[in-house]
Every structure is written in structure tokens, then in C-alpha cells.
């Protein structure tokens, strides 16, 4: 019979401590090690948004599952697992960007944005909860809620995702407002920069926004098989989502904090001891990212 232990400490009892794979020291982590040759195969990526147009050439039929959430005026939540279309084009754009980096990932379209504003926050939360409970590996959240009423609910969901090794990648709001869940520590929050190289991303040592990725004048898939050139943090987050899918497909089982560490180590402004980072297009050139350059899909 096991001796009593303080709460939460049983997993650290000598006979219970589990061995987990080591990761290289931070200075040794390179893009090649992190995602070189990876395509996102076997990684489930949920896009919680306006739906994904599976018939768009950029998506190429990669949507493996659908679910939509809508709350009616009476507060009743309606859930539908039938294939759906994209209400705005935004979800298709995010999925397109993710596939440029991780073309073989499995996409799940979680539609929470429709024609009704009523119940939008609860539909969004229900969609996120579904993605976590389905054990998606990565969830792209290029949307958020500004409503203070949802603080606790989204905080709970962000922590739930973190503890279940579900990586939440969120877009910071484009306006200087409080937006959930992008401001929580358990998520990976992203804003945009001017670059166009999908592998060009930066680490921000002053959170809550931790990473910067391309999101200004990005050409993306949109409604009806078309494309548009758009600007917004919404389009930065899927770049990091795609990278995370690549990393997880090469290193299955990594936790969100390990993935964040790898992203930080491979960001273009992170250097080992030379005292400063480069501006956009700085010292780290394509030669420093051989696998990344080779794997970049044309835009």
C-alpha cells in the first residue's frame, strides 16, 4: 500500500517518476532539428473560425472533420457535424496559411461564426472546448472575445488545453483592447510583422504577445476559390500554427512549453550570446534555414 503523500505529489514518488525524452540544449536547437523535412503529417489542427471551404484549391480536400456551433435567441446551442462552408472566407484563409507550412496536417473545421452575433461568445467557447476534448494537437484561434464576462470561461479552457497538451495559437486583437484568450499565459499569442517569408518569425521577450509572424499584405485563399491580399494579426497566428504542426509531426508528444521553447530558440531575433538581434531580413539568411527554405510552399 502506498504511503500517503501531499496532494499533487504522487506523480513524483520514486516509483512513479516517468522518464521523458530529453531535448537538446537550447543553443543546439536549429530549424533543421525542429522541423526540417516535416510536413505536419499525423497532426490534427483545428481551425476555430468561420468554417473552411474544403473545395478551395488551396485546401485540397484536407478537411477531415467538421463541427459547427450556433446559439439561438433562446440560448439553445445547436451543434452540427455535417460538412459546412465558410461564412466569410476568413477560416479558409487561415487554413491556407497553415497548409503552406504543414501541407499534410489534418484540418478540422470548427465553425463558430455565423450570421448571428447573439451567443457568439458561448459558441466560440463551445467550439474551443470541443477541440480540446477531441485532443487536437494544435488549435488556431484567429479570433477572440472582448467581453469581460467570458474571462473565467476562456481562462479555464486555456488551462485545460495546456494541461492536455493541446497547443492553442491565438491572434492578438488588432485594436489595443483586452481580448480573450489571447492574453492568457497558457496560449501562444501572435501579432503580425511586415515580412512575407512564412518562416520569418520573431520572439518578443515582453509578453503577452510572444511571437511575431507575417500578417501584412498576405495573399490568402478566400471565398469561392478566390484569393485576397489582407492585413491583420489574424493571418500571423496561422503561420505559427503551421510551424507548430511541423514541429509536433517531427517530435510527437512535446508539451506546449517545450514547443514554445523551440519556437523561441529558432526565432530570427534570438542569438546565442552575441548580444543583439537583427532587424527584419537580418543576419540569419535562408542559408541558416536550409530545411525551411526547401519546404516553403509558393505563395
Amino acid at each position: 500500500m502506498e504511503a500517503p503523500r501531499p496532494a499533487w505529489s504522487w506523480q513524483f514518488a520514486p516509483e512513479r517518476v516517468r522518464q521523458v525524452p530529453a531535448v537538446p540544449v537550447l543553443e543546439d536547437i536549429t530549424p533543421e532539428w525542429a522541423w526540417g523535412g516535416a510536413t505536419g503529417a499525423g497532426i490534427k489542427v483545428a481551425v476555430v473560425d468561420s468554417g473552411i471551404d474544403n473545395d478551395h484549391p488551396a485546401i485540397a480536400g484536407r478537411v477531415k472533420g467538421y463541427i459547427s456551433f450556433t446559439e439561438d435567441r433562446d440560448g439553445v446551442m445547436h451543434v452540427d457535424e455535417a460538412p459546412h462552408t465558410d461564412a466569410f472566407g476568413h477560416g479558409t484563409a487561415c487554413a491556407d496559411i497553415i497548409r503552406r507550412l504543414a501541407p499534410d496536417c489534418e484540418l478540422y473545421s470548427v465553425k463558430v461564426l455565423g450570421p448571428m452575433l447573439t451567443g457568439k461568445g458561448t459558441a466560440f467557447a463551445a467550439g474551443l472546448r470541443w477541440a480540446i476534448e477531441q485532443r487536437m494537437h494544435v488549435v488556431n484561434l484567429s479570433l477572440g472575445t472582448t467581453k469581460q464576462d467570458y474571462f473565467s470561461l476562456f481562462h479555464e479552457l486555456a488551462d485545460m488545453a495546456y494541461f492536455r497538451n493541446v497547443m492553442l495559437v491565438t491572434a492578438a486583437n488588432n485594436m489595443p483592447v483586452t481580448s480573450y484568450p489571447s492574453l492568457f499565459a497558457a496560449v501562444t499569442s501572435v501579432a503580425c510583422h511586415e515580412g512575407q517569408d512564412p518562416y520569418e518569425f520573431y520572439y518578443n521577450p515582453e509578453p503577452p504577445v510572444e511571437f511575431g509572424a507575417p500578417g501584412i499584405n498576405i495573399r490568402v485563399a478566400w471565398l469561392g476559390g478566390g484569393y485576397m491580399t489582407v492585413t491583420g494579426n489574424s493571418f500571423a497566428a496561422p503561420h505559427i500554427t503551421g510551424l507548430v504542426a511541423k514541429i509536433l509531426s517531427k517530435h510527437p508528444g512535446l508539451t506546449p512549453f517545450q514547443v514554445k521553447t523551440i519556437l523561441r530558440a529558432t526565432a530570427r531575433n534570438v542569438y546565442a550570446g552575441d548580444g543583439g538581434g537583427p532587424p527584419h531580413g537580418g543576419e540569419r539568411t535562408a542559408d541558416d534555414f536550409p530545411s525551411a527554405s526547401a519546404g516553403a510552399a509558393p505563395i
Partner: peptide, 15 residues
């Protein structure tokens, strides 16, 4: 209105 997110579009006529 649905998202509370700003957006800029450079080639609206595409769609």
C-alpha cells in the same frame, strides 16, 4: 462586427 477584429484588404475586387 462578428469578431471585433480590424482588417485591411488590398485587392477587394478579387472577391
Amino acid at each position: 462586427a462578428a469578431t471585433g477584429q480590424a482588417i485591411a484588404v488590398a485587392d477587394v475586387q478579387q472577391d
